[in-house]
Amino acid sequence: MKAVDAENITKQYGSFYAVKDLSFDVPKGSVYGLLGPNGAGKTTTIRMIMNVIIPDNGSISVLGEKMSENMKSRIGYLPEERGLYPKMKVGELLVFLAGLKGLRGQEAKQGIDQWLERFDLSEWRDKKAEELSRGMQQKVQFIATVVHKPELIILDEPFSGLDPVNTKLLKDIMLEMKEGGVSIIFSTHRMEQVEMICDNICLINKAQSVLKGNLAEIKKNYGKNTVILEYDGDGLRVREYPEVENIDDYGKYMEIKLKDRADPQKFLESLAGKVRIDRFEIKEPTLNAIFIEKVREKNE
């Protein structure tokens, strides 16, 4: 069974396509990366999954059923643009939001208590939301997303604004939930996070899917013609080698994409004497590089 199955969904505003003919499916119990540059149509897609916006064409089924209002209580959604009622106390706010998901009474209270405890927020239960720091508000929002034990959670930039300690806590919880059978749709611009967490991805650009499938397979298909180079010296001299197709230079670190069928060994030889080499590694391209290439390709 699929956690989400979107078939040829389209949303149009006037002559502008927010999402065009998009299909993807999220296997149950996996982490699915929904990626794309700003304005690509990710939020519209998520809103359509959540039944907040109705697609003009195509169909979406969630957890094996056609998406409907009743399904909302089985899903948790942490939007990118998120907030809390500033004047409400944290505890009351969570009871309210849990209540909207159908979780009430003692069950709601216990769930909220446990989560507040886990996020070290118990002392803030009776404080107004506006008194919390941004990171704390984030955590409260996350609790509201998961307290009703959803079978599918959609997290849009869940780590933004969190310190390393809380980022780790949140990542651990995500993996815990995945192991518990929860399906997760994860949307972010941080490709290194996607590489570490996601099983499958769908890359959207300009309202359409440009790349999708199993992350490991995608990377394998790109072949081992990427070189990671840590160096010291004049980076420009690296470019002199004719088989170089593309370089992402960070000053002391480079990701170099060689042309198809280029021999990395010859490239290494050519570098000798030009720069000081601290590391030379032949590997699959990073998702970051794939993302940039795909988006650029489409825009050209």
Partner: peptide
């Protein structure tokens, strides 16, 4: 306006209809 500008509306709409 408060619901909209505080963005809480995005969260609430994931549970009920406008």
């Amino acid at each position: 306006i408060e619901e909209k500008s505080s963005r809480v509306v995005e969260v609430v709409l994931s549970s009920l209809k406008p």
